[in-house]
Design a protein around this nucleic acid. Structure first.
Lengths: 201, 201
DNA sequence: CGTCTATTTGAATGTACTCAAAAGCGGTGG
DNA sequence: CCACCGCTTTTGAGTACATTCAAATAGACG
């Protein structure tokens, strides 16, 4: 399978695996193709898998008491996503996970993840490092929310994650950045007006 | 040492250690007493230790371009703190870490932490779990920032972390919650006015 | 005490939101 | 191929939540 190449490369950025370990790891995964708008996790369900995206894009979001969506994370090719709270505690999820586009996914069940830790302790290291990186990204996001204006947060976002604009609608990006779609639209209009940019040669 | 009992208990909430492993772990630690306002890490320096608080309280914060402090985390007895970004990458820190009160600390250097991983792989698990919990807490904070008003965030804070009010000044709490000290003061006045509370028997 | 820091107050202001509606865009079926 | 439908993005007017600034008050510590 072509898709498994991506995930082995992803893993081997942090730990190295011999052929047997690779095969064992792959045997723990379940492949899943989903169409745009497919729901992979609903709030209230227990999150039973870590999801690795080989192709396509997903988002996770919470829904508040006024039924507003708040995008918590995006995941594109080569990214992992889950409701970590629910996955760890095996309590009901607070998040939804949904496909932003037709996607190819590899699922690692909580059970298999624990089995990996037991049989190949290196995976403990891999997921420690993965979690550390995620933590650092989350902390940076908190800092940005505390210190930057809506416009600055948007500029930072297109600087770091412009590729997400390719697959996620703007109102999801607005939500991720903690602003309304209307306000993001106004920011973009303002920026479009004043940018001495790469648009005109 | 009394203080080492706290940290062994902290560790053994997630992994179990025999006497030799306990001794080995303790030998990796450095004890440090600091007074209120002592600075343990400055932005720009490389963060070389994970800090465990046995007594007292610390805060981490960033300073923005207008010299405003933004509190990122608090750490009281039995909590770990560090600039994870800097600790992991060994690049210059973006955060400061400072004592909110006279404190007793145990320092685990990055080097010794790596040594622990090599010699006692169980610690890989411990720090994976610790990082996971921290990630979940950070994600919840992001959700709160996206979905709650300033007043709701404060109420949630006193619900979960009221003990931090004992050791941190209000303007630091305001900063942690993403609001100005003036506004927090107004929220508290308003709440004090309307609370059918446990204050008058 | 006196000084320094923390907290509170009030008035003016601003950033970002709400609401309502129009315009754009994309897919789908007649 | 065009018409229609649903979803996304844009616009504008009015509003609100939270900030800024300046100053008074209260607490903590040597």
């Amino acid at each position: 399978m072509v898709s498994t190449f991506t995930i082995l490369k992803n893993i081997q950025r942090h730990i190295s695996l011999d052929d047997r370990e690779q095969d064992f790891f792959l045997s723990m995964l379940e492949h899943k193709s989903v169409k745009k708008r497919a729901v992979l996790l609903k709030s209230g369900e227990v999150c039973r898998h870590s999801i690795f995206v080989t192709e396509g894009a997903l988002k996770s979001f919470s829904v508040d008491k006024n039924k507003n969506e708040h995008v918590i994370n995006f995941a594109v090719s080569d990214w992992w996503i889950a409701d970590m709270y629910s996955l760890i505690s095996q309590k009901p999820a607070t998040l939804f996970i949904e496909a932003l586009a037709d996607s190819e996914l590899l699922l690692l069940s909580k059970q298999n993840q624990e089995a990996l830790y037991e049989k190949v302790p290196k995976f403990e290291r891999f997921f420690r490092i993965l979690t550390e990186k995620s933590l650092v990204a989350n902390q940076q996001r908190i800092i940005n929310n505390l210190t930057l204006t809506a416009e600055e947060r948007y500029l930072d976002f297109i600087d770091k994650y412009s590729f997400i604009l390719e697959c996620a609608p703007l109102h999801n990006v607005a939500s991720y950045l903690g602003m309304t779609p209307e306000f993001l639209s106004k920011i973009r209009r303002k920026l479009a007006g004043k940018e001495p940019d790469s648009s005109i040669s």
